[in-house]
């Protein structure tokens, strides 16, 4: 795994962190936002766990 690839995994991890933070901070009644954060996190989590 080259250096640039490692950096991209770090960027992915940071993006997931902020999305998860926003998910936690979003209002419970704002269903649209909650679902959007969850859906947006999905491909990033797949990559971070090296599944796809």
């Amino acid at each position: 795994m080259n250096f640039i690839m490692i950096l991209y995994y770090i960027i992915t991890g940071i993006a997931i962190f902020f999305m998860a933070w926003n998910f936690i901070k979003a209002k419970d009644k704002d269903l649209n936002k909650l679902m959007l954060y969850a859906i947006a996190m999905f491909p990033l989590l797949l990559r971070l766990f090296r599944l796809k």
């Binding site: 998910f23 936690i24 979003a26 419970d28 009644k29 269903l31 909650l34 679902m35 969850a38 996190m41 999905f42 989590l45 797949l46 766990f49 599944l51 796809k52």
Partner: peptide, 18 residues
Amino acid sequence: IRKWIILGILIFSLIAAG
């Protein structure tokens, strides 16, 4: 509870697809 449900669906989807 709503957040937990959405989080549960996300984790379930990740496992089911992963």
